[in-house]
């Protein structure tokens, strides 16, 4: 098999797009210079380039008339009609979305809205667990006071049962 990688011929290297850019005049000067010489002498590239240039010239001859004067007016009227037909909320939404950019994209806005709603509900609702815990604390505090009072009463009773100090000394 013939090695074509080092060849100077774009056709042999299978790089017709270089010739295409050469014919279109979009190849950089440093690439176009050496190619000029090659194309002149290459029996494959020379007819290819001639034909491609003929195509290019033929396409260039196809001019199109300028746009009609009514085009803009007709388009702007269509836009205005479409705007008027849209519901007010939709118009407001698009305007807000335009101003806020991606933040108002529904994929972002819906989860963000749901999170905000949950947060509000969470903060405003009374927490049943929290209330119960409060009640338990109150009950515990009352029991502790009762126990302390009882302990003091018992201590007083024991003190009354003890004999006076003089009798103990004897």
């Amino acid at each position: 098999m013939k090695n074509t990688k080092g060849s100077a011929c774009p056709m042999e290297r299978g790089e017709e797009e270089i010739l295409l850019r050469y014919c279109a005049g979009t190849l950089a000067a440093e690439g176009a210079g050496p190619l000029d010489e090659h194309v002149e002498s290459c029996p494959r590239c020379r007819p290819w380039v001639r034909e491609q240039r003929a195509v290019w010239q033929a396409l260039e001859s196809w001019k199109v008339e300028p746009v009609t004067a009514e085009f803009d007016a007709a388009l702007l009227a269509r836009i205005a009609r479409e705007e008027e037909a849209r519901p007010l909320w939709r118009r407001w939404w698009d305007r807000a979305k335009g101003a806020w950019g991606a933040a108002l994209d529904w994929r972002v806005a819906v989860p963000a809205g749901a999170m905000a709603l949950l947060l509000v509900v969470g903060l405003t609702m009374e927490n049943p667990f929290r209330q119960e815990a409060g009640e338990t604390m109150v009950k515990l505090e009352a029991r502790e006071i009762e126990q302390a009072e009882r302990a003091l009463e018992d201590l007083e009773m024991l003190r009354q049962l003890e004999p006076p100090e003089e009798e103990q000394k004897l």
Partner: peptide
């Protein structure tokens, strides 16, 4: 796409050269 398109165009329009 461009290779095939220009191939067709060359075959049909190249005779316009000159």
């Amino acid at each position: 796409l461009l290779f095939r398109a220009y191939e067709t165009l060359r075959a049909k329009l190249a005779h316009m050269a000159g």
